[in-house]
Design a protein around this nucleic acid. Structure first.
Lengths: 132, 132
DNA sequence: TTCTCTGCAAACGCTTTGCACGGAT
DNA sequence: ATCCGTGCAAAGCGTTTGCAGAGAA
């Protein structure tokens, strides 16, 4: 059995062809696709694919802890199989989102991977004191 | 002249009543309001206020470097007069966004300000190597 | 006059919802 | 028969755009 298929089954997800392809699309690409990106890629192979299925599937994956949703510059959802583990770098010009090494320690105004860093934004999440 | 009015003028912004109130609303509240939040607050005082004006104004403020746009969990725009300077803490339960002290160094799973931190997300931005 | 500001209405883009069809069990 | 996965169509929601009226310079 294929690796992707096996992983889905392990998570209790019925491995339909759509789900396998969407999962592979997330695994195989180091970018952070939007629903539209995923739809465009896979509808070449499955012409009847609908965006609803893409949204259904990423929602399912998210519920099962397979992927994380991160927000792009314009607020569109982007999906990443390992978003919580590493920092990102977003280009203010082209809007691309790059992965950075988790262990990297970055100082202000420093260049890293050839990118010129101008700002750093940190957001922690968890349960606040009022909700505990 | 009022402080808020003076600050707007310094930035070359004509201090209309709407702009002053929106600016004050951002300064005076330590939360990070959405356009809707701002609209709801100020339309109590200015019943004819339109959401368009709120959007126009935050866009203007953003262009002049007065505020930063940060993205909420659901992707809605939230506005902060000093977002780039400090990290945030977002509660996974209630969705509230809290300011954290910039100088704080936070380790994983640590409690801070009484909040229980579960995840840390870092995003750098600037100009990528392909755009330079 | 011209320029700026405002705000209604409509459009737009991303995402969700309702529902019905088809296939598997 | 039920349950599940899919996908069309429509709705929902935040945001932007087009445009016109009012007011300031």
């Amino acid at each position: 059995m294929e690796e992707a298929t096996k992983l889905l089954k392990e998570k209790g997800i019925n491995p339909s062809i759509q789900r396998i392809k969407i999962f592979k699309s997330l695994l195989g690409n180091c970018d952070h696709p939007t629903a539209k990106d995923i739809y465009k890629r896979i509808s070449k192979e499955i012409p009847t694919l609908s965006k609803t299925t893409v949204y259904n599937t990423v929602k399912l994956f998210s519920d099962r802890g397979i992927l994380q949703t991160i927000r792009g510059k314009e607020g569109e959802a982007r999906y990443d199989t390992k978003a919580a583990l590493h920092p990102h770098f977003r280009c203010k010009k082209c809007g691309n989102l790059y992965d950075l090494d988790k262990k990297l320690i970055v100082k202000d105004k420093e260049k890293i991977d050839g990118h010129l860093i101008e700002e750093k934004y940190v957001c922690y999440s968890g349960i606040c004191k009022n909700c505990r």
